[in-house]
Write a protein that binds this DNA or RNA. Sequence first.
DNA 1: TTGACATGTGACCAAAAGGTCACGTATAAT
DNA 2: ATTATACGTGACCTTTTGGTCACATGTCAA
Lengths: 109, 109
Amino acid sequence: MRSVEDDDGVFKALADPTRRHLLDRLFERDGRTLTELESEVEMTRFGVMKHLRVLEEAGLVVTRRSGREKHHYLNPVPIRLIHDRWIDKYTELRVSTLAELKFRLEKTG
Amino acid sequence: MRSVEDDDGVFKALADPTRRHLLDRLFERDGRTLTELESEVEMTRFGVMKHLRVLEEAGLVVTRRSGREKHHYLNPVPIRLIHDRWIDKYTELRVSTLAELKFRLEKTG
DNA sequence: TTGACATGTGACCAAAAGGTCACGTATAAT
DNA sequence: ATTATACGTGACCTTTTGGTCACATGTCAA
């Protein structure tokens, strides 16, 4: 059984395309600052800041301050927990194979 | 690089607690009808129907009609694709171990 | 210590999402 | 044929969310 609060913050955080894009950028290279990430997105600094805050509160991003800079790092654990919620160990191999196949097909098609 | 459309439908679908609860019920037992699922939720039939439609359009649920009934089945492939987007093969083992640990801790704590 | 840089806050507004209801269609049972 | 069942649609309203801006704080360099 799950708590009432669920993992709501994580799912809400992932629901926005801009936030997913930010996660993609951090997946590619960790430790970026707000100003760096700002240049990756068609949006004012304030919008990006809000999004990063949502990601951080969800635990998908952890931060480290260094002087006047704030560095952002991707934390993949909540993602894995989503996976484990609806894919048990017995079906994991089968599903991951299908997912791989789908990925290949979309790449060529 | 990803398409502009992203997997928006999947993430939006997962963003609502009621829809996640419906997925949980289908994970537990497949093939339920709308009326069956309705009893699992504090909401009118119309709300549940909307939610199921969102899940179906996202590809998280597939359906099969039989007479006047419509049966719903969980499709875990999109979930796996989320996983693969931010967890590569090299970090998967480490992250899944951490996730397992977190799960055990929360269970006892 | 003056000025530029990096991040932060609260108010505000438009757009999207969640939920209900009146009404409607198709299938099954009596 | 009539009634009950199971699902479907469109309009409607309320709440939440995404984005911007004026303003503000803390940090580094010259």
